[in-house]
Nucleic acid binder design. Structure first.
Lengths: 293, 293
DNA sequence: ATTTTTCTGTAATCTTTGTTTCAGCCCGAT
DNA sequence: ATCGGGCTGAAACAAAGATTACAGAAAAAT
């Protein structure tokens, strides 16, 4: 389908054919990057100090049906100009067959990531990173049925970077004990995407009641925990699948890990060195059970 | 003169207070950089699949007089945004756009995914999906220190989709027992990225010796297990961080889940229904332990 | 100076819009 | 099972919108 000409270009091309007041109008449109054309015809007429019929006539001269038609075109042009993807994942698809699962998946994921980031408040991100990097705050991570592995991933890294990190067991029966440790200085990091789990909300509420700070990772539909959360990260999760995708969520997690690591690089370097040592040591332990060498 | 808050920021701030359909609307606005909000209220309502009163209610919640007032604000915001073609990352952010952690991270991740897919053999992907979708094959998942949560994520889904899926414990001491179950028809799915772990290779070798098929997820440098693997997926993992990123790996996992699910949708539907039932039932179990409701 | 042509805005019209009211609905609590 | 509270959209309405027809004004041609 041959793409319609840009309104901007139309204005330039037809400029010669325009009458005085039409030109006045065109100038106003061009000055404002067409945006003034998104007002009502009345307001636009006032801005340009012309009458409304003049506007209709210009629209017709440009080849449109009427003002509404012109405005639709302008809106479409503006929308195109506004969207400049932060990072363009290749949606053309890496493989020729556009309908392969992978291809569709990547398109969806690329979309999810872009949209998630558009919605993200970098200031909030930094604030949370600050909290997570503070070794005086105890961190407790909690995930739902599916998101538990995301929590675990986060936990794996945080635990190496800093002290005082706990992964709450998936069995709700042990949560009450865990609550004992959650007090004023504590931070509860919860993952809750649909289908939202009652138990998570309950625990978050209780933790909140004890003065804990709540960091929530959820989807855009909004977990009920949002109400109690001090910080909320919302990720897009929809993909062409029966399941939701936690990739955008994982991106946030990894970025947070990187940021927290960066903020504590000096102190965590020692921890990591110590860990490497212990891993080395553990070869000795392991040698008894199969991995001989 | 104190500048009015940006509509975009208002949407983010108030998100927690919004109802379901208001959120749907907010999502449409955010996705389109607010531009959809420049249509008439009727058209906008159709785009977002909500009613016009919902739009008015959202406008009021954001602190505007009504839709027209909101639209004026949007038009003004859009006009501002059009003037600066390249201010993409949040101006509220503390640092100039390009060097925020998120920005650099996303660039790297986008790169990783693209390059991972370039290297990927779709035919191999389909072959593996076929194997994983075959209920007669027993599946055993195994991850390393970091990748264990990726294995767990994969496991969570596979287990729901089909029978005969096992997640091998992280403790090497119990692996010998697990090996008893791994025989000719079995499939071992191993995750091994740097730093490659000796134990994983050992287990893979042994499993292979017993006739198991090995599916390996690794990075492009190549785990030593590649030698023994029947299928290898190589993902790019480098990001501006002290840690590697498993996002590209996760993408493959999720795509595989989707594909396997699609191939077994008929039979897995029953499983999922049964699961939903059991989740419903479990409310009864749960009611006794603190989550009194 | 008169006529013709072209341009422009006023006023009347018909359409669409934005707002309000209200009843049904779903969901959670009792 | 029943009740209440909040959410949602259908319908009715007043307000504003866009369009048309027409007449006065300005410029060009004779």
């Amino acid at each position: 389908m041959g793409r319609r000409k840009l309104v901007r270009d139309l204005l330039r091309e037809k400029q010669a054919d325009l009458t005085a007041s039409e030109r006045k109008l065109a100038a106003v449109l061009q000055d404002g990057q067409l945006v003034p054309g998104l007002q009502s015809i009345t307001k636009l007429a006032e801005s340009a100090e012309v009458s409304t019929p003049t506007i209709v006539r210009l629209a017709r001269k440009l080849g449109f049906d009427g003002f509404n038609d012109l405005q639709d075109a302008i809106r479409s042009d503006v929308a195109d100009a506004m969207k400049q993807p932060l990072a363009k994942l290749d949606p053309g698809g890496p493989m020729p067959g556009g309908d392969h699962m992978l291809s569709r998946f990547v398109t969806a994921v690329s979309d999810n990531i872009n949209r998630t980031l558009e919605r993200l408040d970098t200031a909030a991100f930094d604030r949370v990173a600050g909290v997570l990097a503070d070794p005086s705050r105890r961190l407790h991570l909690l995930g739902g049925r599916i998101t538990r592995s995301n929590a675990a991933y986060f936990f794996n890294h945080l635990q190496i970077i800093r002290p005082g990190v706990t992964l709450l067991d998936s069995a709700p029966s042990v949560w009450p004990q865990a609550l004992l440790d959650i007090d004023g200085g504590a931070v509860l990091i919860v993952f809750d995407i649909r289908r939202y789990e009652k138990g998570l909300e309950k625990l978050a509420t209780l933790a909140r009641g004890q003065g804990a700070e709540i960091v929530l990772f959820t989807d855009i539909w909004g977990s009920p925990i949002e109400r109690h959360a001090d910080h909320t990260f919302r990720a897009m999760v929809e993909v062409p699948s029966a399941w939701d995708s936690t990739l955008a969520l994982n991106l946030l997690i990894e970025a947070l890990i990187a940021e927290v690591q960066a903020r504590r690089s000096d102190s965590s370097a020692q921890r990591i060195a110590a860990l490497e040592d212990m891993i080395g040591e553990s070869r000795i332990f392991r040698s008894g059970q199969g991995a001989a060498d």
